[in-house]
Write a protein that binds this DNA or RNA. Structure first.
Lengths: 198, 198, 198, 198
DNA sequence: GATGAATGAGAATTCATTCAT
DNA sequence: CATGAATGAATTCTCATTCAT
């Protein structure tokens, strides 16, 4: 089993570093986290980081992509069982908030730290985020074709609004003292949007 | 006649520096803007900045407070004429987006730069933002009392969702190539929420 | 009585500032004391300081000169009554240490702060200090002429040694926890030197 | 063969930096010496300094400790051959002044610069200096037990006085125009103290 | 004489990144 | 592949001093 291929070992190291990074970022924030701190947590030398990532910004970007990929996967699979767009909206809210709820460090990365990397905001194309938005928009489009959502609604604009709402509510949850009943909140919000979309 | 001269001059200087700062932040971002650049734009010496603000972070915080105060004022006044909560929601969206639309630099500061100051996110209480949220929540509460919004809705949670939606849509607008028809978008979004709230 | 001459008012202000300075220096040290702090303690504006002193260094130098002048005066007068050089040495030690003992802030200024001003050490001629040394040397010279001190002793070298001993012992006293019995110590030290000089 | 290489290299670098520092401090004084100037003289980058020392203050403190350690070593060894306390006092003066005489830069550091670092005076415990004083006091104590020094003398107080005298005389020597006959002066001073101690 | 707002030179330290081993 | 010592660019903030009022 040790006879791992080069690619496997590379992926293992990358994952090792990203896990160290997400923990570090969640604790101190992107700007205040030192590359050497990530290296320490990952159990590698400072220079080793640069064998797997081009820069500190690149770590954040990769982190987002890998994690968002997973989020997308989970949501995508779960929504296969849904019979209509309305149900898919409800499920989307429920899943997104439960994922964030179980992994607060990830929440930090998505809601806050992502906006702290200049490269991320100003230069990075952010394909995974676009995919998330596209997916949300497609659900709304489906609902319109199913005749349950109003046809004059702009799916892409609304997808953005939905993500913004989720993100902001999640961010608020991060700083809330007591654990928020995320599933009840998720339902409450999805009701609001579903109702609004009808 | 000398009365309030000192205070006036102080306020003038502060405004002068904040105006320089908002322009600089919008152009290069908070982290990449040098204090000396703000000083240059304001036409004062570097050290003078520190007679009016404690730190670079403090400039950002003050900037937010002063500008948000103005936004709140404008919205508050305009909404006095509204007959019911539903109209107030529509007006709120319309005004917020039109203000942002006319002052993209302000948009930058609110949507992006604010999240780039560690102090802002992790330490600052952000009273003006809280006021905005409280105000939104009060509109929803009014609507519930008026019997036009569902009573099981949580006004504070929904206020946050609304701000998140507005903020995200605004952020998207910043990077959009062609000028967005903000008033149409505002109406579209407020319809969504009003419908959802009913 | 208010009809003070210009010179009197000037001297009053200077004294006022020097008193503020000695207190501030003793508390925070020369380098860490801000000119504005001295102004605050003296109850004048920052700029006013510069009407009476050329620079921060100049305050320290003037402080030393004025205070050392007083010390010299006191010692000089007291030693007029002494019958021989030996007695004068004893009296010198006793007086110097008692003066320092009663005014620890002055001690700080003489023993420590004086060495912290570059100008003081490297450029300033320090006439009052020279006078103190000359005076000490003259006592030793007198003793030699009186036939009670060895003639092969170099009065100027020994004067310096005596001041160094006094200064170091005083410095140690500043950081000592319990009040040192300065008069006993003074006698003990003067015995040492008198015996050594014989 | 690799053994202790890292340690050796570290010590080499530290010595390299300290040597550069002592030269720079002697020339311009502690406060006026830039860290970048020390780096330049040591032939390393500015940042490298901070891999070996915590701060500029720390350089001064380390400098004192390393050099004082050497002084203590030399004096300690040389005094092993002395038959009695009196001889040891004479030797102590002779050696101290000859060491200082041969290395004026070291003299600067000990007599002047040390008093220019706030941390040094106000916070640093200064163990090596204490060791020097303890050693001097022990010589005096020995002399008392040998019956050649008066028993009523306080060894610690006198040790301080002796160091003060030596330090002050050394300081005077630094600013003297012509080279002082340090060995004659050392003997003259040690005679003074030995005589006084008897 | 007095004020105090404004100046602006000045410097220690950090830390992402590199590269010789 | 991995290391970690070395780099050096980069920037906020302080504070003695000035000078218009």
């Amino acid at each position: 089993m040790q006879s791992s291929t080069r690619k496997e070992r590379t992926q293992f190291r990358q994952r090792q570093i990203l896990d160290a990074a997400v923990a570090a970022f969640a604790e101190k924030g992107f700007y205040k986290t030192r590359v050497s701190e990530i290296a320490r947590r990952a159990g590698v030398a400072d220079g080793t980081i640069y064998l797997y990532f081009k820069s500190k910004d690149d770590i954040l970007i990769s982190l987002f992509e890998v994690r968002m990929e997973e989020v997308l996967q989970v949501i995508h699979e779960a929504l296969l069982d849904c019979t209509d767009a309305e149900q898919r909206i409800h499920e989307f809210f429920r899943l997104y908030m439960s994922i964030i709820d179980r992994d607060p460090a990830l929440a930090e990365v998505i809601t806050i730290e992502l906006r702290q990397s200049d490269k991320f905001i100003r230069e990075y194309e952010n394909p995974k985020f676009k995919e998330l938005l596209r997916y949300l928009a497609s659900i709304i489009g489906d609902g319109q074709r199913e005749g349950i959502f109003r046809s004059e609604i702009d799916p892409r604009l609304t997808a953005r609004a939905i993500f913004g709402a989720l993100d902001e509510v999640t961010l608020a949850g991060l700083f809330a003292k007591r654990p928020l009943e995320s599933s009840r909140m998720a339902r409450s919000l999805s009701e609001l949007f579903v109702q609004g979309l009808r």
